[in-house]
Design a protein around this nucleic acid. Structure first.
Lengths: 218, 218
DNA sequence: GAATGCATGGGACCAAGGTCCCATACTCGC
DNA sequence: GCGAGTATGGGACCTTGGTCCCATGCATTC
């Protein structure tokens, strides 16, 4: 185990994106002094091409930038498969922009001049949120990978099982013998790596799986 | 069934709170014309004393008001057991105020002059959110009422069951016979009105019940 | 002091879940 | 055409879960 500072592994990486180089320097210095792994960009497109998609992190973003607008960059980040959290920092922010930013999930929206504490608090809270989102996204990805390993039939049985139906009824619904359902059910438990039915139900909940149940008369 | 307009039953009730009587009149008229059941208040405290806690609804709120500040009123609403959603409307809103409002869960934050469509959209979205929150709060209340009807022992068994443990193991953990656990478990299913174990697990999830499990050696 | 609610279980059963081994049948790709 | 993967089940067997009736012991309450 090497304990060198690994920006992407530490969950402490902060990207600062601002076209004003003096602000960029000042903010970067402040955050580095606070112990964060900071990467600075004066060009939003450059940032978008280089940041680490596979790690949690925080982006400190100026709203008004030439080339790529801050809000537009946020929109692209939301569209991309990342778990980055955004903190806006701006000199001349207007209310509509701040509202749009917050609606789109920004953690905070600071107007210059802001005091150091506000920025540090925002970054801390953003990293916290990003790490949580990243972890949850990761766990979900594992679940979906397992789900994808199910055959069609197993998937059907899975849905009926987490709906609380008895094997006997599932058999009727799917037009098979109870015996066969048991076999599929056993394989579902194995493939999903569920230690108990309760586990399986919780997995289904997290994946938003609700039975596509035609209750009576298919 | 009387189909008279019932503000609290319809899920369409909107409270407008603004100390500027001309704005109050204009906004109220607009919303009434759109079919909402509008109640207007020029005094925030009066509103706070009179609104219906037991129905979903939307509050259109001015930020700057004498007596009770808009943000403070929002804070109180969040503290109270309501499911109201807040839309801010203000003449001279500053960015920090809008950010605080959005962080506190406001649906939108409009600055005058705003066009009618923006307000109507915001109110519609707020009512939608409020209805969803209200329903979910209601369902949760039912679950908690059932949970409260469990005896201490039943509650313990409940936690172990949704943790996926077998009756046999629960018996060991609680120092009782498997037979006894079965009895408790049966009563838990009855009292919680769960049709299946899957149901019970989902109920536990919604209530955030995770076993307070001392795995080995109590 | 009788009644009530609760926790505790024995006995007896039956239903449901789970798991072996085994077999058939179909489809797909090489 | 043959093997792999899939869906299907029979037979046998055991473990769990669920539910009757019944009974005891211990608090609290009226």
């Amino acid at each position: 185990m090497n304990s060198a500072a690994l920006p992407s592994g530490s969950g402490q990486s902060v990207y600062v994106v601002d076209d004003d180089s003096s602000v960029l320097r000042a903010v970067s210095r402040l955050l580095r002094a606070a112990g964060y792994a900071v990467t600075a960009f004066s060009c939003p497109l450059e940032f978008f091409g280089q940041f680490d998609r596979n790690a949690p992190g925080c982006v400190v973003l100026d709203i008004a930038m030439p080339g790529l607008d801050g809000l537009e960059l946020q929109r692209r980040l939301n569209g991309a498969a990342t778990a980055l959290a955004v903190v806006f920092v701006t000199g001349h922010g207007d209310v509509p922009a701040s509202v749009r930013a917050m609606k789109a999930g920004a953690v905070d929206f600071l107007t210059k001049p802001f005091n150091d504490t506000d920025l540090l608090d925002a970054v801390d809270s953003a990293l916290r949120r990003s790490r949580a989102a990243f972890r949850s996204r990761d766990e979900l990805a594992v679940l979906y990978r397992r789900l994808a390993s199910l055959t069609l039939r197993e998937r059907e049985v899975f849905e009926h099982v987490v709906a609380g139906q008895l094997n006997k009824l599932i058999a009727v619904d799917l037009g098979a013998a109870e015996k066969t359902i048991k076999v599929h059910r056993g394989r579902v438990m194995q493939k999903m790596e569920a230690g108990s039915l309760a586990d399986l139900v919780r997995m289904a909940e997290r994946m938003g799986i609700h039975s596509t149940q035609r209750n009576v008369h298919p």
